[in-house]
Amino acid sequence: MSDDAPVADDRSDEPREGTAVPAIRRVAGTGVPIRGDDIDTDQILPARFLKAVTFDDMGEYAFYDQRRDDEGTLNDHPLNEFQGANVLAVNDNFGCGSSREHAPQGLMRWGVEAIVGESFAEIFQDNCKSLGIATLAVDHEDAVDLQDFIEATPDAGIEVDVREETVQYDGKTVEGEVPDAMREALLEGIWDTTAVMRTNLDRAKAVNDSLPYTDD
């Protein structure tokens, strides 16, 4: 987040009881626009960087090829130009293709905490939910307007409100949509589903036993 971001991030520090993750109500900071429809996860995180047994270094690899020119020096890609931002502004069908969680992991480790765009590929969106990254779907015009705004005023504050399903910037409030399950999970701090589902382990075992194919 840039130093002069007007509002503080609202990740509550203390996880709720029984869960290991904080509730996320709002993400506030500055923006980074990445334009284009159907940006696939191969572009977001090229396959050759998947050869790692942890996600630790993924931040460096986000949009790796697009951030460099032919000689390998950093170019004017938004991830180079808008360092410190945390709200990513994209267009249609963002994150399509491969299911690699390396893609949202890379974006998150670069600094992204919320993504505003026209639409998102589903596995990508599920992965964002698992990581506590909010996605807000807005109209085409609104997405483009937000991108224009960020380019014109990179330091201006932007706030994604998960509860209200809005993005606020430039004195206006734009309505969008956070998927219900993601919204609930973020607001309640239950986006780490392992803990929640583990409490139903006996029921999962019962389902396993009841299925006609599980005795092979």
Binding site: F55, S99, R100, E101, H102, P104, Q105, I123, D126, N127, S130, L131, D192, T193, T194, M197, R198, N200, L201, A204, K205, N208
Partner: peptide, 13 residues
């Protein structure tokens, strides 16, 4: 599924 979901499946089926 993504990797966090793989963890879910490992831990909870």
């Amino acid at each position: 599924i993504g990797t966090s979901q793989i963890r879910d499946v490992f831990a909870t089926g």
